[in-house]
Design a binder for these strands. Sequence first.
DNA 1: TTTTTCATGGTACAGCCGTATCAAGTTGAT
DNA 2: ATCAACTTGATACGGCTGTACCATGAAAAA
Lengths: 201, 201
Amino acid sequence: MPKRVDHAQRRTEITEALVRVAGRRGLHAVGMRDVAAEAGVSLRLIQYYFETKEKLLLFGLEYLTQRFGERVAARIKAVGGAPGPRATIEALLLAALPTDDESRTFHFLYTSYAVLAMTDEALAAQPFIANPDAAEEAVAGLLRQAQDADLVAPGLDARGEAIGLLAMSAGLGTGILVGQRDAASATGVLRLHLDRIFGAP
Amino acid sequence: MPKRVDHAQRRTEITEALVRVAGRRGLHAVGMRDVAAEAGVSLRLIQYYFETKEKLLLFGLEYLTQRFGERVAARIKAVGGAPGPRATIEALLLAALPTDDESRTFHFLYTSYAVLAMTDEALAAQPFIANPDAAEEAVAGLLRQAQDADLVAPGLDARGEAIGLLAMSAGLGTGILVGQRDAASATGVLRLHLDRIFGAP
DNA sequence: TTTTTCATGGTACAGCCGTATCAAGTTGAT
DNA sequence: ATCAACTTGATACGGCTGTACCATGAAAAA
C-alpha cells in the first residue's frame, strides 16, 4: 500500500483554502483551480478528495458552521459562568457580529451561502438553519432564566424577544459588512436594546 | 431614419426581464442570454441598450431601489396621514418585509447585490447604501416626533432605536427569505418591539 | 522482490460566458 | 425614390469552467 494520508485532515486543509480564497474574492467567484492554487496542490487533488464542486461547497458550509459554533462557545466561556444571563446573551450576540477578520469572512460567506441556498436545492436541504434555531433556543432559555431571577419583567415573551434580538444582531452584522455601520455603533445599539429588556444599567 | 424607439422604456423592459429571471434562478446564475430570452429579444439587443453586463446589473440595481422606494411610500400613504408616528413606522417596517412575491424577489436580489458589492468595486461605489440611510433618518425623525407628542419616553435615543428597528426588520426579512421564519411571526416580533418602545397597546 | 493499492500530477474535453464583428432590415427625412 | 441614421439579427471568438481520463510515484503487503 502507499503512504496512507489522513483524509479528514487533507479535506480540512483544502476547505480552509476554500474559505480563505472565497473570503477574499467572493464565494461566487471561486473555482476549483483557485482552491487548488490557494492550497498549493494540484487541481486533481481537489477532485480526489471532493469528487465534485458541490460536495466541496457543502463541506465548506459545514466547516464554517462548526467553526462558528466553537467561536461563540469560546466567547461565552470567556465571560465566565457566574455573571448572569445578561452578560451571556451579550457575549453571544457580540460574538456573532463581524468585528474582526475571522468573523467578517464568516458572516460574508454565510450570507453568500444563504443566497445560493435560495436557488440550490442541495444547499437548501442543508440544515444550516438549525444553528440559528439553536441560538434562538439558547437566548430564549437565558431570558427565562433571567425571568426566574427577577432580572426582567415577568410578562416578557422570552421567545419573541430572543428572535428579535438575534434578528437585530444579524441585521447589524450585514450593516457592518457593507460598510454602512461600524462595529462600535452596532454594539452600542445592541446594548441599548438589552438595557431596555433588562433594567437600565 | 428607422422606427424610433423609446430607449428608456426598452431599457426598463429589459431590466424587468432581468429582475424576473434573476428572481427565479438567482442573480449569480443569470446570463445575458437568459435576459434576452426572458425579454423575448435577441442577445444583440441587450448589448445594444446596455453595452456591457456590468452596466445592465447596475441599472438593475437602480431599478430595484427606485421600485422599492415607491412601494414603501405607497404603503405609508395607504395608512393615511393622521394615525401618528407608530402606525407610520410600523407600515414602513412591514413594507420592507418579504411578505408577498414582489417584496420577496426584491429582498432576495437586494441581498444578492449586497454580496456582490462586497467584492465588486463598481457595485460598492453605488449608493444603494444611501437608501437605508434615508430610512434610518425617516424612522429617527418619526421617533423624535413621537417624543414631542409624549408618546414615547423623553430620554429615548431616537437614532439608536431607529437603527435597531431597521436592523431587526432586515434580519427578520432574511429569516423569512431562507424559510426559517414565516411572515406572521416576523410581524409579531416587530410589533412586540414597537410595543415596548411606545407604551403597551 | 514483486505485487497491489493508494495518492498525485498533467492534460484534454465539452460547454458556457461576455463580447465583438459583420450584416441586414426599417423608416423618417430629403 | 434615395439616402442615411437607427435598430435588430446571426454568428464567431477567446477564455474560463467543472469534470474525465491517462499516467506515474510511492509504499505496504505478499
